[in-house]
Design a protein around this nucleic acid. Sequence first.
DNA 1: GAAAGTATGTTGTAATTACAACGTTTTGGG
DNA 2: CCCAAAACGTTGTAATTACAACATACTTTC
Lengths: 214, 214
Amino acid sequence: MDISVLHNSILFKGFDDTEISELLKALNAAEKKYKKGTMIFSSGEITDKLCFVTAGSVTVESNDMWGNRTILNLVGEGQFFAESYALLPDVPMLVDVCAAVDCTVVFLSMKSLADLNDTIRARLLANLLTITTRKNLHLSSRSFHTAPRQVRGRIMAYLNTESVQKHSREFDIHFDRQQLADYLNVERSVLSNELSKMQRDGLIRCRKNHFEII
Amino acid sequence: MDISVLHNSILFKGFDDTEISELLKALNAAEKKYKKGTMIFSSGEITDKLCFVTAGSVTVESNDMWGNRTILNLVGEGQFFAESYALLPDVPMLVDVCAAVDCTVVFLSMKSLADLNDTIRARLLANLLTITTRKNLHLSSRSFHTAPRQVRGRIMAYLNTESVQKHSREFDIHFDRQQLADYLNVERSVLSNELSKMQRDGLIRCRKNHFEII
DNA sequence: GAAAGTATGTTGTAATTACAACGTTTTGGG
DNA sequence: CCCAAAACGTTGTAATTACAACATACTTTC
């Protein structure tokens, strides 16, 4: 098994090669290869496996009963999936996971966490906690930014957060228009239009990625 | 300090009274009372304190530069706030927290986590991880359910999840119409209307909280 | 520095949603 | 059982958004 990818992951941050090897053994690490298109998990399943993509990529998707398919996430090399389900072993998966291309996945048993010695376990849990907390903050922010019904409200919510984060009324954002539109769940053209109106109304000034709140 | 409320919290699940007392000391637990309307945290601040409401309630709110106030969360007795910020000590708060009524808050230093013995620390981290992971799943679901631009899409996304969770095409939901509308971020009347149309189109059958996917 | 490609801004129309107003059904006391 | 209150469904209109089509500006490459 190629542990170099694992070594650079946030999960094993602070662990050296020897410790990682021991951890892999203790967590019953199992490597498995999948052909493109193969289903790795399907909704309704229960798992305690934290999954790590060591090669290729997988899609997390929702396939509903009316035949609609929505890709929720593309998980590439060095990234995880199914963390939430692994850590909440009583919750059935609400999504499907498929191999986007030929890929290799390492499965780590979270049930086996209990068998680890307390020091190692605490360090691993701390890393996991950082990962989930960061994701949490991210999801909360987006939820807040997309909560207003109108485009202007969403823009203002977003810009205010950026301004607080950057400690300034003037700042650059890392989204281009299309990305910002997708993030705020609005049309790109409508977003551009509303930004223009907001400038005319004297609320903001902006040019490309640079914004100023007035 | 009244630890009975703390004792019943998810954070201290599995800990007995003695352990909780020791933990409180180790985490530099500090109790503080606030008059209604007082600001407890304001956006931009940094904190490593996990905050627990032992009496009264607080509001987590966003107050933007244009004077808009949005209440994001009402945190009552026995509940936490600022967990994410406490666990990510480099991230400045993006929200304000105010005393909704006269209240008492216990602050626990997460920086002091490192000083705990490994066994206790691992148990506490495991509890924290359960809390954040559960919240995570919840936020992800909502994000998915409100992603479709149209009302019908949101309803279908939501009903599909419920159906998978309940392992059946027929199930009850725990939202009434107004709550479901708020959750999906649509108008109640538009929701009612769309549900009717979906029944006419033969996609679902529903009556009050009971739904059937066809 | 011209050409091609990409990102952004603008506008008009069709489609969707918000909102208010009102009728109907359900629920919970008395 | 009746009444009042709450929850739910329906409808019409005003407001907003989606979408397409096109104009403009900026970037990259040769």
